[in-house]
Design a protein around this nucleic acid. Structure first.
Lengths: 171, 171
DNA sequence: CAGGCTTGGTTCAAGTTTGAAACAAACCTA
DNA sequence: TAGGTTTGTTTCAAACTTGAACCAAGCCTG
């Protein structure tokens, strides 16, 4: 089949998307590196842990939540562990498993740096969008994520007792 | 001032955004790494060069267009040069300047791999959005990029004769 | 036109990411 | 229950990114 090239409308959207994501990523990373001494991804890991019961998660679940590869997560958690913000434990129910748990210090860092982070997200993103656009953005991103996430997002196994999931709060 | 936390609407949008951008980036990178042997950024560099008069650009202009840092660009161009896809030249008008020029081989690689890339962008992104949403996405991203790009996007100096700019085509 | 500031690029070390391979525990299935 | 497959995680080397120096070449201003 001959290539379905992008329409000029799509091209503009794609280019704007690339530019916006690069710039936004840079802004967020720069601020967090400054104020929390870690890149955004690492902050996200802490944030995700903080919102879950017992503030701990199995590596694979954490990778799934943050949409990153396992090896990337392993590296990140190792660094965070070295910094004392996360502790690794063995999974009691599954000898293969490994659990990342937020330490008190990790929680403290999170609490201390969250305001600055949120402020940056606001200043970089939401301050420039109308409420309507925020809704549109969510819808658009949810659709994209949903489509690309097949296989990763198999239905939550609530019937499996030892694998709790939880509800979402912050960044 | 007390922190303006995100509303739950904003939180959902932010999380969806993070997920979507991670997943999309991964999908695009994976495909290009497979089929073109280079990550998306490197492909973008070639693409940007291909669309500009004479298929060459000063490093700083190229960095500006792709929204990346100069040092990142230096590294990338070095690799592309090693691969024979880009050639470096000295800027005739400015002794400090350095120019990256797309080689014929670079152009060939681009032409060979563009269809697969476009197809992936389509399959990963546009196929999941309505025309209306594409417009919304562009508007949203343009606003974000515009806001974050101050200082980088000083008015195009058309009055400077030796620094041509040009119109945009593909990815 | 000398000294100093600015601009365009590169370099370097430290940190991060990638993807494939290695391991080990758990889960079959005959 | 032995052997083979799947699943959870780490490891390793190669590639990439970061940010702070650094080096030149232009651009003042006195």
């Amino acid at each position: 089949m001959t290539t379905r090239w992008l329409t000029s409308e799509e091209q503009r959207a794609w280019r704007a998307y690339i530019a916006a994501t690069h710039l936004l990523e840079d802004a967020i990373d720069r601020q967090l590196q400054q104020d929390a001494g870690m890149p955004h991804l690492y902050y996200s890991i802490l944030a995700n842990l903080s919102e879950v019961p017992d503030r701990q998660l199995r590596m694979t679940d954490l990778a799934e939540k943050t949409k990153i590869t396992r090896s990337r997560l392993t590296y990140a958690v190792s660094r965070l562990e070295k910094d004392g913000l996360v502790r690794r434990e063995n999974c009691k129910w599954d000898g293969r498993g490994s659990i990342a748990a937020l330490t008190d210090e990790g929680m403290a860092v999170l609490e201390r740096t969250a305001p600055g982070h949120v402020e940056t997200v606001r200043a970089s993103l939401f301050d420039h969008l109308s409420e309507e656009q925020v809704r549109q953005l969510e819808e658009i991103c949810a659709q994209i994520a949903g489509a690309l996430d097949e296989g990763g997002s198999r239905p939550t196994p609530d019937e499996v007792p030892w694998r709790r999931r939880s509800a979402p709060p912050c960044s």
